[in-house]
Amino acid sequence: MPTTDLPRLEPDTSRTSAERPSTWRRVTTSSGLTPKTVALPAAALLGLLAVWQLLSSQGVFNPIIVPPPSDIFSELVDLLQEGYFWRALRFTLLATVQGFVYGCLLGFVLGALVAEFSTFRTAVYPWIVLFQNMPRVALAPLFLTWFGFGVGSKIILAVTICFVPVLVNTIVGLTSVSEDSRTLLRSLGATRWQVLRRLSLPTAAPSIMAGIKLGSTFSLLAVVIGEFLGSTEGMGVLLTTFNFQLNIGAAFAVALVLAFVGLALYGLVAAVERRFIFWRND
């Protein structure tokens, strides 16, 4: 009898096993850490450092301008024992995280308003496009003048730079909801708020997360640039100071720490993404 003929799972599971890594439960497959993917990059780095060290010891590089890796490493070890280094790191981290959080909130709220209210969209959309395309770091000197050399001007610069990708991706995500799913929810009598919460926001979530990931990178960048231009404290100050002192090894070490800070921040956001967004919109 046809109705008792249960759907056959076999062809479907074979289809989805190929899809699964990119659709759901990505967590289990996405890290991709195999002996090969760890060993090869590590070998590449070690090789580069070895060549660099060798060339330095042969006197090819001027050690003042391009210090050997061993110098940078010992500068880094020294730096980690200095109180001023940790104060600078704390300042930069505080500015970055605050700028990032406020920037994401601003981008998200503004994006949701633009996507949901057409009058608001008409009013602000051209200015968003303008703002998106201007080099927003150009505002940094103004912010220093207005908000001083403290942490405030760095936070505001970070917000200014970081909110845009979040904003744009929020708009794109919320407006990419398929007409069919809107029709479905409407036919089920969903309120506007329910459509937003149950349909639009989850649909937009992957896009919004992509914006937030960009934002995390951007906010650190903004804070360091702000610190270069004028600051009482911070990693950017440390870096320019070492540079002026021709202590290039220490400057390198600071840049290295900043690289790890950026990576950690991005990794944190990516981990949150993997935890909550396990599907892919089709």
Binding site: D180, S181, S187, A190
Partner: peptide, 19 residues
């Protein structure tokens, strides 16, 4: 009226929410 509980609609696409 959209949302009437005595009325069910099916569209060409299944429209499943992937999450």
């Amino acid at each position: 009226k959209a949302g009437r509980r005595d009325l069910g609609i099916m569209l060409q696409r299944a429209v499943m929410l992937p999450w």
